[in-house]
Amino acid sequence: MGKLKIVFNGILKENPVLVLVLGTCPVLAVSVSVAGALGMGIAATFVLIGSNAVISALRKIIPSNVRIPCYITVIATFVTIVMMLIKAFVPSLYAALGVYLPLIVVNCIILGRAEMFAAKNKMLDSILDGIGMGLGFTLIIVIMASIRELLGEGSWFGVSIIPEEYTIGVMTRSPGGFLTYGLLMAALAAILAKKGKKPLKFSTSNGCADCPVASACNGSHECEEGAE
């Protein structure tokens, strides 16, 4: 697999938010303002790159029985670093993100990429995967926040654009978040379909052919074990 392809996979074809549907909680909760969303995206990207690198380096040492606690420990370390940095240098962002900053520990994208990619690939590839997935996450959360802040608050990045009497209040509330999320998912599916690719789904009915994470699991058929 080409190095560049690993990075770009995370942005479109395997976009963590819109295609893999991971990390929905921060995406829905933090995408009310562009500034907060950008901060969240950068923080999560940093944690993702760091945890991918360390977990990939340790992949032969970590016993598979206790791999999840090991991953969580590594991820929590990086989240703590990020929290301390943000608290020290950007206290306003620290206040804006609130509980969602420590919650990066349980962000499914990070744990998911550790399990799906970093535990099986070399360190450089894992770092590239972290960059790609982080960019994909940041891109979507910023796009969502732009739509919601513009329509709901009439501003973008805090700069007022639409007069207040023409704002649509529902967009800054949770229904607006779900609505924007669904519409963006549909839009990406349409873009991928136009390129001649099938709409991506987690499905074992067609073997690994349709599965967006097939390249990561190397046909190990782990997805069939649980059969949840």
Binding site: I168, G169, V170, M171, R173, P175
Partner: peptide
């Protein structure tokens, strides 16, 4: 309902 939430 959406209008009620948007334009209270």
């Amino acid at each position: 309902v959406v209008m009620g939430l948007s334009f209270p």
